[in-house]
Design a binder for these strands. Structure first.
Lengths: 190, 190
DNA sequence: CTGAATTTTCAGAAATTTCTGAAATCAGGT
DNA sequence: ACCTGATTTCAGAAATTTCTGAAAATTCAG
């Protein structure tokens, strides 16, 4: 590996982390390198930087393209492909979330739904189904929230984040007002 | 594998998904089985159900205990260990989030901070550091939000989720009111 | 302390994943 | 069409991870 020490540390760490996810080490390293490069890199520069085989780089880049995590660029008069990570880190986060959902959550949801539809053949299966329904419900709540929130522009998303749990204070206040109104009017629950 | 078909399908799927995360197939299968079992299971029942070696089950259970994802139970007069997945699926979600953060996010944050502290030795490193700072900032925003939200009780958390992006409407309304107030008073920005 | 039941450990076997080099394919330019 | 530089493919090598069976350790009853 042939990189400035600070960059090398980052690349190595990212490679390790990558393999804790489903991503393999090399793919993580390639992405880390692209992420900290001011200029687009071509495959041979990656080979050079990481000290791995050309074909491995090719496969890694293919994987990253499948994840929509890199952009392909061309330099006029140069036939090589150049790659970058998007500048906007929020965009990277969005892509990552979207792709992970597609690969990890959606298939599970579809299996859960299918199994919940089946006629249970025994008491064990009946109980299992009730558990699958709980899981299905939770995942649906989470994905509905996600589908809703992902449409926010970055500024609003950041505001939402910085607000954190404080939004619930608004909710509590609202609830109090509403229930107060009900009490005055004498309708509503006990 | 020796399980009712519906349960077997779920267990197999969960095993596959498990290996897309960092978790290995067997660990995923064990967890799935515990999750849909109404009663606590002992190691031999898992061996029986999944058709894998006793030692493999032992290792899988150790892994799940390290993740705090299973509870150990004892039946009076029986020396065997029995295991369950928590009943409350929200609790499972919380544990999962907490452990993944601990394993995946925290180490990255500490590497980022360390690298950002270093004196850059070149222009490349200077640029890389600026990118690491962006990443560090984003992760801090996300983890602050998470630390805040995770303290909510389940009911409030569910409310927050069901609200989704609609909370920003409240914010927008608030902003309009505030800026209107400012305009009337004639202070504040253009 | 002995012994039966249970769990854990761990060296090596088996399976899977990753990586490489050689060959094949592709995309202009002449 | 042919050449050249670039990329992709893919069979098998290398590395890593997972799994097993046998042995060791643990735990408790008598």
């Amino acid at each position: 590996m042939n990189l400035p020490p600070l960059i090398q540390s980052f690349v190595l760490h990212f490679g390790e982390m990558g393999s804790r996810w489903g991503i393999n080490r090399t793919v993580g390293q390639i992405y880390a390198l692209l992420y900290v490069s001011p200029e687009p890199l071509c495959a041979d520069q990656i080979v050079e930087g990481l000290g791995i085989s050309r074909s491995n780089v090719s496969m890694g880049l293919r994987e990253l393209q499948a994840w929509n995590l890199v952009n392909l660029r061309h330099i006029p008069g140069d036939r090589r492909d150049f790659f970058t990570a998007p500048d906007d880190i929020w965009q990277i986060l969005r892509t990552l979330a979207e792709e992970r959902k597609k690969r990890e959550v959606d298939p599970t949801l579809s299996v859960l739904r299918e199994l919940i539809m089946q006629q249970p053949g025994s008491e064990e299966e009946r109980y299992a189904q009730s558990r699958l329904m709980e899981m299905n419900g939770l995942i649906e709540q989470l994905t509905n929230w996600y589908d809703d929130v992902k449409r926010l522009d970055t500024e609003r998303l950041a505001t939402l984040l910085s607000l954190g749990s404080r939004v619930t204070r608004l909710l509590d206040a609202k609830d109090r007002i509403v229930s107060l109104g009900r009490k005055r009017r004498g309708d509503g629950q006990p």
